[in-house]
Design a protein around this nucleic acid. Structure first.
Lengths: 348, 348
DNA sequence: CTTTAGCAGTCTCGCTCGGCGAGTGCTAAC
DNA sequence: GTTAGCACTCGCCGAGCGAGACTGCTAAAG
């Protein structure tokens, strides 16, 4: 008898579920005997074996070697998390504790770090949170301060929350009064607009102004352009609890572990992966090498986007072995995304 | 025959040196046979054995088990690095490359990160650099900007180089003009003074002013106090190249490795250790558990302080297995300290 | 047609055992 | 003081073996 994925017998589903859960719990190949006792159905090991053989043919489970039990394959996990998993809601008390531990962060970066630690603490795996990309942040105001000969400090205030500053090296010195004029001019023009918009407008104005030869305006615009150029914060993430992964039996091999940690340092690849999650709403899961990055072999990544004012500005998640307690990790990631969003929104 | 540490035979010294160097190279206990061939002196293994036996009695070497060669003990390493080691000067070309790779960092933090990476890249071990503690930094100026209702952005410029900002939550709103007044007042009073001095003076003025009931001054001073309180950056360090340690054979045990990495995350203890190096000039070395922190068992720490304008403001160094190539690491750490100092000083 | 018992076969794991090689410490001779 | 010789001690490694765990197949039972 032959099933397609869509029409797995109820029994087969049941067994795949039991097998996966058991394997996640114990980490050891599970055989027909234990499965027979574990699952509610009153079946003999022999019967179980028949069904399991079918599952193996479908590529959902495999045995590490003859005469060991079976373990789920990547496809097996996929089916498990997509259709078989019953996610238990989080205990309210835990959610409370989580909220608290994130609670009072004022600084955005601090919040992100706390969220990452939170994820790793609660799941006992590695937590990862991207820094918010506020492309849509509104420019609140710009301020220029003279520092010294030919050096000007530019202060950018975004959304009343975030502050970025950068030091500009200018061709000549500017007086306080001059800089004040620049600030006023720019604030009048751009305050309240989105950064991307500001940038665009800036360039067009710059072109226009060059023709009219208004020195002051041109200089101001040039300065602003410089600031925006440098202030574009390279997207990045904060990782926490890497050491938790060292306790995981799957990574007892140092070479394996090293590969993983080097992937963490690379950042680029992992960021690419995380970026894919920005679009999809809700929790998303990458299992094993599904991601295409073989450094994440034997790893799973559970992610959720987080947003502020309705716009997704980042992704957070958990990295752990494929054999992780999904039914627990998923609601935790989900909850953390909500908590972080709340914290960011209530930031005053 | 019995030596005290001070009066090791020339021959004994020679042998200890050869043994240590050999062990550092190969990582395996070295026996009398290889030692006899290795060292210039024309001696038979039997003779070597006699001398080595004396070294063992002094606690400078030990054998992991009967009938394996000898390895240096912590004391052995100590004697080795203190009196036997001949440090070869660094190739100029390497110094050049190092300078370059650090070269153009404008931001202090960026420089520190680059220095850390540099150390780890060149030594193939873990690099560590503390963030500069600029207790003696001069306060260049203070600026307050109104953000919104009851929120004020304070910008601190130090030494014409570093900028710190913090957001203050105030009891009532302040107008631009008011804040401008505060800034002017504070700048007139404190600009150019050292931070610690500013703080001190601030407190006394605050007390005095309360009596004269000058509202404006009092508020300004209070604000300044708040800023200084928050701006005190918690001392911290930047680590790089931890993954290099995973290649080291000494740390092939995951448990061991985990302990080490958790020590890195703790930060406090390691910082305490690094602080000890601030006082001593030049390169300093902690071998194995000499530091008192047993998480650094089997590790050595090679450090050097770095300074700006004659004042030591931080420490940098390398963490690796006790069995590291000291004669190479030491000059690298030394050079990096000088290069970082130069880079920080030339920061304009 | 489904389910089950029984059985032979296969593979891993952990254990012991013995040989090998390396290196020491001692003693006696140079 | 130096050296050769020798007995002895270990750690390492591979072979061999038994136990245990499952499977897949076949044939009988429901």
């Amino acid at each position: 008898m032959r099933y397609t994925l869509a029409e797995l017998t109820e029994r087969a589903q049941h067994l795949l579920k039991a097998l996966t859960e058991r394997y996640i719990r114990d980490g050891q190949p599970v055989g027909s005997r234990v499965l027979a006792r574990d699952v509610g159905l009153n079946l003999s090991p022999a019967t179980i074996r028949n069904v399991i053989a079918d599952l193996e043919e479908l590529g959902l489970v495999r045995s590490p070697h003859t005469s060991a039990g079976r373990v789920p394959t990547v496809s097996g996990y996929r089916v498990f998390v997509d259709t078989l998993l019953s996610v238990k809601p989080l205990e309210l008390s835990l959610v409370g504790t989580m909220k608290e531990s994130l609670g009072s962060g004022v600084d955005t970066k601090e919040l992100v770090q706390k969220a990452s630690s939170l994820l790793s603490d609660v799941t006992r795996l590695a937590g990862i949170v991207t820094l918010p990309r506020r492309n849509h942040a509104a420019l609140e105001r710009v301020e220029f301060l003279p520092l010294s000969e030919k050096k000007v400090l530019a202060v950018l205030v975004l959304n009343n929350k975030e502050v970025r500053n950068s030091i500009l090296h200018t061709a000549r010195s500017y007086s306080s009064a001059e800089l004040q004029q620049f600030s006023n001019f720019l604030n009048a023009q751009f305050a309240g607009k989105e950064l991307s918009e500001v940038r665009e407008k800036l360039l067009s104005e710059l072109r226009e102004t060059r023709e009219t030869l208004d020195r002051m305006m041109a200089t101001a615009l040039e300065m602003a352009d410089q600031v925006l150029g440098t202030a574009e914060q390279g997207s990045d993430y904060v990782l926490a609890g890497q050491t938790n992964l060292m306790g995981v039996t799957e990574f007892c091999d140092v070479g394996r572990l090293r590969q993983l940690f080097e992937a963490f340092n690379e950042k680029k690849e992992l960021l690419g992966l995380l970026d894919q999650c920005v679009e999809n709403e809700g929790v998303q899961i990458f299992i094993g090498d599904e991601s295409g990055y073989q450094m994440l072999d034997e790893c799973s990544l559970v992610t959720a986007p987080y947003s502020v004012e309705g716009k997704v500005i980042g992704v957070l998640g958990v990295i752990g072995p494929t054999r992780m307690a999904y039914e627990r990790v998923i609601p935790i990631v989900d909850a953390t995304a909500r908590i972080l969003r709340a914290a960011l929104n209530s930031q005053d």
